[in-house]
Design a protein around this nucleic acid. Sequence first.
DNA 1: CTTGACATAGAACAAATGTGCGATTATAAT
DNA 2: ATTATAATCGCACATTTGTTCTATGTCAAG
Lengths: 220, 220
Amino acid sequence: MTAKAAKLPKRQKRVLTFIQNYMQQHGRPPTVREIGEGAEISSTSLVSYYLKRLEERGILSREPGVSRGIRLEQPFDVTMLPEDNETLSIPFLGYIVASEPIPVEPLPGTETVEVNRALLGRDPEKLFALKVEGNSMIDALVNDGDLIILRPQETVNNGEMAAVWIDSSGGEATLKKVYRDEGSSNVRLVPANPTMKPIHVPADDVQIKGKVVMIIRTLE
Amino acid sequence: MTAKAAKLPKRQKRVLTFIQNYMQQHGRPPTVREIGEGAEISSTSLVSYYLKRLEERGILSREPGVSRGIRLEQPFDVTMLPEDNETLSIPFLGYIVASEPIPVEPLPGTETVEVNRALLGRDPEKLFALKVEGNSMIDALVNDGDLIILRPQETVNNGEMAAVWIDSSGGEATLKKVYRDEGSSNVRLVPANPTMKPIHVPADDVQIKGKVVMIIRTLE
DNA sequence: CTTGACATAGAACAAATGTGCGATTATAAT
DNA sequence: ATTATAATCGCACATTTGTTCTATGTCAAG
């Protein structure tokens, strides 16, 4: 909240709060009479008087003679978007292939993919997307062409799936559930497919590039 | 089952587009007269007529006798997204489990899931969604909890993945690539995992409930 | 104590806005 | 060809909404 609202008289503050709440709830500004009712101000001329004061402070602007002609200025604008249907542009960094390093840096002119925010967890703005090339991720129940969404993380909790680069043997990218067992210097990498066996790799040879948060497979 | 905006008459579409743009630009809904001016409709009663039609379709709602008493319903809320990133509400019909019939009919009060239109192919308004319960779809590279989007179809082209109900042995639901081999009365059902073997089933025992068009796996 | 600025309030009025009626035309069904 | 329904339109009217006028109260400065 900016300095503009600092030391706002009680009644003006009530008017402003009412307008903000009304905007959120109704998707439109209130009328002068609605403000009077909601902020307990007995006359329309007094509401007008307060709106004029708030306009002078730059908190809102008015269009004379227009119904509901009140507009909150930033940062008082209230977004009309229902939050759960917003999508997010996630940078698409390239392809994940078993034999090549996993891309983690965006380049100029990076493509993006749109994903519904409702399907994502916290810090969605840090996510990036990779597309799977080849059948090497089959043991993760991930197919050639699948889109995976990741959060850049160098560690994950036991049992979480990550994009992992294994240094030994010339380097290999894989998607697996990662476990650091107590008392062991190895990392256990477990395929998502419960019918397949885990592998054990020295912890020093393993680089976690990101945690997998979503997999999208389009078949058309 | 159709998406709400399918086959909207040209003038209603103009009205809707005008309202959306006006909301974005002004932060409030337009008046009936502003809609008339902006969408080139000559009378207020005709604008009212179109608003009534749009309300009947569930695209918007109105408050009688209130100035600017128009509210766009989801998924027609004003969005900053370019048009090809619009989302579509797809009816979520329930769960697909190996041992139970595949749901294909929507019930009253059906939930929906939002999916980006850009990720879908043709006729997106016919699609429905199911969630996978259990590990029985692992051979399709589909995990417990995955969301699958399907188009209701009773036949698919060779090699396309479908939700299939097999009548024999008391009934079984499965997700497999379907092949009708020439000169054979059997259907060949091929797992998506290329390391696993196909099964052959008499064609009469197989009911295709829908073609799989997308699989979404959320890991958080 | 006086004065001026600001705050408060009711009510009337003008303008904006939504609704409904009646009429005409277009389209689809029989 | 007839009939029913949908689409189109102008206009009058009712209601909502914003503005203005006038009056009164409060508070700070001189």
